[in-house]
Design a protein around this nucleic acid. Structure first.
Lengths: 198, 198, 198, 198
DNA sequence: TATGAATGAGTGTTCATTCAT
DNA sequence: TATGAATGAACACTCATTCAT
């Protein structure tokens, strides 16, 4: 009568992988069941609906993401160090939850309008506040350039980091930390050599 | 046999908008028809299938994109100038075809394995060759940094530009050229102020 | 405003051919229009509906068939000669209206229950009366065998003749009259050689 | 993966009945489901498609038919006895599979061109070889008439037997064996009384 | 816990038919 | 007379979900 939480977690892992690979809409409950070695109807012993699986996958991911982010933001670092820590933390999350991140990337926009998924929009707002605030603080402190549209900069950094989930595969050539290092180097210093264009 | 091309183009515009907003799979033919002010079945007077609409949208976009890219690549510019021109051209395409670009972004990965859409994979290979080649030339010429993983750099620049389609709306605050200018400035010189980290 | 009867006849010929080749249900109005070199909607200038084309094809055929049959039946021939004349006349109709006959063969059973096509059932009853009556007369006169179930004999002769429409092609090896001659020879005398089995 | 074979057989029986009565094309999946007391979609738990139902019905019938025919052909009977045995076997098959036979009759011509149903054409060729060969042997042995076009004779016997499926209903007045006896008597000896026409 | 069999709403698509031009 | 464009009902099929076992 009460399904074991471990089995749930296992099944959610399977579901996340399939959602990420095929897209939520294109994923049938049967495909998930196949991948889990059971019949479609059997999943309903563990979960209320396909949507509730998606819900749980995203919510779990966001919980962990914010645990990491909140720790960084509470550490009282300078703006540049905060950005560096957030980017590194982000790549670590992509490494740990790459399926969930891929799903989030593809589906969050149209999900966030549904009542069940308002927490996605909430998270996004909180996210924007943290990053945009840090960037603004950096501009004020003179560590980030002041000649750029700050919202454009925000989107640039945000997208740059998270789209990486679309090609990132855990266990690849570079560790999340190494990728973070190189990305930060590009974002902060640019890819051009020599004098900066004035 | 080939009903009025203008009407087709109109309807494809409507379809692209809906595909971009809701995702291809989540878009029903009835939604497209609703948006076009007609009945679902009526679309089949103009198109063979939902898939053929998608096909035509993507193929038209890629044709125009490559017309622009090929012109840039044939101009004999230096690596930095080539990158600048390609990025600018890309933002122009995002401006002109923002729906098609958004669709491409979301769907190309799983579409490119279907026989009908092999041209997506072809385009992607050609794309990678052009960008990666230019970056390599730039490293050899000493205009781009040599201390970065070149494929990581490629992905960074590529994604950075094209994800912009997810938030870009034509007629917004900045022109495509202005966005390109700021993006190039960030990508080439970084967002940090002061001495570059050695 | 009043479509010319000649064009109608032309188009009915085309329609009959397609109905016969593909079956009525499997024949789309568009296929008929294609075969006639026009667009589907244009047929509706000449005919009320797809069904009315079928109706006119079958009714025309049955009218001609009964003109021939009635002439035979009115001739006052003996039973054997009547059967011979009916069979010969039938093969001539198959030759002249092979498409209509093929359609009749395939569709009459399920059509005859529809109010519009009650004349099919009427014709069939009249048909049965003429043939069965002639056979009974023949049995009474001692020219046909009395040891057979008469209804079975009727079905045997009837089917034997009309199924030929399924393989008969006008302008083939044998003339309708020659086929009739051989069929009558088989039906009347059997295909076996030597003494009849007692 | 393979749901209960008994239920499948039940449902195929229902489907065959409806196909036979209304024609394959005119039969909607809904009608079959109605006749089976379930909803249209539920059929797809048991079968891949409407076409696969048809396929299984026809293939099962032909398998059984050829089991019977092959036994007859392997028995080493004389030509006349072979024909008698084949006709009797045919009426038994019509009795056992009257729906499948009716479907075969109506649909095989246009189905046999589809790749999925090539076995229909194969069967037809094998069928023709067996019957035509036996008839030719009979003519050579002097037990069948030599003055008839042999292909015409073949078509005559073949059609004569199989069209019976269009009116035959199991449990009727005559057993299949009795019908076979009378049909054979007509086919072999003719329906006329007295001296044969020279 | 999982299965087998079903439901019912919805999906892409077809097609006879209509009608202004 | 014929076309081009549309309608609307129906169709084969899919799929999330249910439930007795």
């Amino acid at each position: 009568m009460t399904p074991s939480p471990e089995r749930r977690r296992e099944l959610l892992g399977v579901a996340a992988e399939v959602f990420a690979a095929q897209g939520y809409n294109a994923t049938t409950v049967r495909k998930i069941a196949d991948a889990a070695g059971m019949l479609a109807g059997s999943l309903y012993y563990h979960f209320d609906s396909k949507e509730s699986m998606l819900d749980e996958i995203l919510a779990t991911f966001l919980d962990e993401l914010w645990a990491g982010y909140d720790a960084v933001l509470a550490a009282g670092l300078g703006p540049r160090e905060t950005i560096e820590a957030l980017v590194t933390e982000s790549f670590r999350e992509i490494d740990r939850h790459h399926a969930a991140v891929a799903i989030y990337q593809k589906e969050s926009r149209h999900l966030s309008v549904q009542p069940r998924f308002t927490y996605l929009a909430d998270s996004q707002r909180k996210f924007e506040k943290a990053w945009l605030g840090t960037l603004e603080r950096g501009v004020a402190d003179g560590v980030f350039r002041a000649d750029l549209d700050i919202r454009l900069t925000y989107r640039f950094v945000r997208d740059t980091v998270w789209v990486a989930a679309s090609w990132y595969r855990p266990g690849g050539l570079h560790s999340p930390e190494e990728i973070a290092r190189q990305y930060l180097s590009m974002v902060l210093d640019g890819i051009a050599l020599g004098e900066r264009t004035p």
